[in-house]
């Protein structure tokens, strides 16, 4: 990335950002959390999800809006997140960096070193 260096994201932030992208229209807290639990195997508390969400929103990678009331939540609304263009850029950046770092390191080699 030329002129602006990418702001580093913490691992949870990265995971949350990715989860929001994956979930698209359905990216609100509960599914995000489920997604994270599924992919990491850790038990994520809501707090642990809200925190990165807030931070990402502040950094301008995410934006949120209130959905229309849904019957499932007893007529209450939910806060849906979606990626901003910056967020997508950030994902691209992460992907690039991660790929670069991992370039040429097959899983097998690592496992052999055990």
């Amino acid at each position: 990335m030329g002129k602006t260096k990418m702001k580093f994201l913490s691992r949870p932030e990265e995971l949350v950002l990715l989860a929001v992208w994956r979930l698209k229209e359905n990216a609100y807290c509960v599914p995000i959390k489920k997604q994270l639990v599924q992919s990491t195997g850790h038990d994520w508390s809501f707090g642990a999800v809200y925190d990165p969400l807030d931070r990402l929103e502040k950094k301008g990678f995410l934006e949120s809006y209130l959905s229309d009331p849904t019957a499932k939540r007893g007529g209450k609304r939910k806060r849906i997140y979606r990626l901003t263009p910056n967020g997508i850029l950030a994902l691209i950046e992460i992907k690039k960096i991660t790929d670069e770092i991992w370039d040429g390191i097959p899983l097998k080699t690592l496992k052999d070193e055990l």
Partner: peptide, 14 residues
């Protein structure tokens, strides 16, 4: 501080 208590609703859903 979570606006319309969406967080409370999140907990409820879970």
């Amino acid at each position: 501080d979570r606006g319309e208590f969406t967080s409370v609703e999140d907990f409820r859903e879970e």
